[in-house]
């Protein structure tokens, strides 16, 4: 979807104002850590995947997405996911009072402290196969299709309609456009190089290029 999250090439956000590296804490307030931890704990229940998570954050009204801090957006995403998965009702969210308990089938999946202290591994969820052979190879010229799906996609707007060159075939990864809709399917993934001049015209930075990872369905062969 053409949401506020798709920021590449936008202007007017002002300076970056990075905090000094040595002074920046991992979380800037205790509640940020709680949101991060809740997101991980709830993800362990297996009722959604990473692209559903991204899509839940992106679907906020653009003005909300842009005015929220990062973990406020995560919180909004968690609430949407909980409601859509039927794990929590709107009434429960509004009142904070539980109307029912977790189902028996989900209980074994609840994140334990021991599991929470481990780095999770999603490899089996990320590298999904695609039986079809890859259509493109390094060196091929490819056009990033002019697509505007109303649901989640990882083809950024600033690349659409532009021609690049395949740099590497990365194998197959979960295809976000379907994964976000609950259909977990793999697709061939390529890294492609786009010259800055091709993307930004006369305002392009001298001697620069953008490399982006694009699934096969985002690409067609260019002359």
């Amino acid at each position: 979807m053409n949401g506020a999250h798709d920021m590449g090439g936008m202007e007017g956000f002002g300076p970056i104002n990075a905090e000094p590296e040595s002074a920046e804490p991992v979380f800037h307030a205790a509640w940020e850590g709680r949101v991060y931890g809740m997101n991980r704990a709830l993800g362990a229940l297996g009722r959604w995947n990473i692209d559903k998570g991204r899509y839940a954050r992106e679907r906020q009204r653009p003005v909300d997405y842009l005015s929220h801090t990062y973990y406020e957006n995560w919180l909004a995403g968690i609430e949407t996911l909980l409601l859509e998965a039927g794990l929590v009702t709107q009434d429960e969210l509004d009142t904070g009072v539980a109307a029912g308990l977790i189902s028996e089938e989900l209980k074994p999946r609840v994140l334990t402290a021991e599991a929470g202290s481990q780095v999770p591994n999603r490899l089996a969820k990320v590298l999904l196969p695609d039986e079809a052979p890859p259509k493109f190879a390094p060196g091929d010229r490819v056009l990033a299709k002019n697509r505007h799906p109303s649901t989640h996609t990882r083809e950024p707007r600033y690349l659409r309609g532009h021609v690049g060159v395949v740099h590497e075939h990365y194998g197959t990864q979960l295809f976000p456009d379907l994964t976000s809709q609950g259909i977990e399917k793999g697709g061939h993934l390529y890294c492609a190089r786009f010259e800055a001049m091709e993307l930004w015209g006369e305002s392009a930075a001298a001697k620069s290029a953008v490399y982006a990872d694009l699934w096969e369905d985002y690409l067609e062969r260019a002359e």
Binding site: W31, M38, A41, L75, E79, V88, K107, L111, G116
Partner: peptide, 26 residues
Amino acid sequence: VKALESLLVEKGLANREAIDAVIDTY
């Protein structure tokens, strides 16, 4: 955030010690 965490704990969807552990890890 506090209200949401309390709700999740009450429903059995998450436990506080696991959330603590995730935070500590990162």
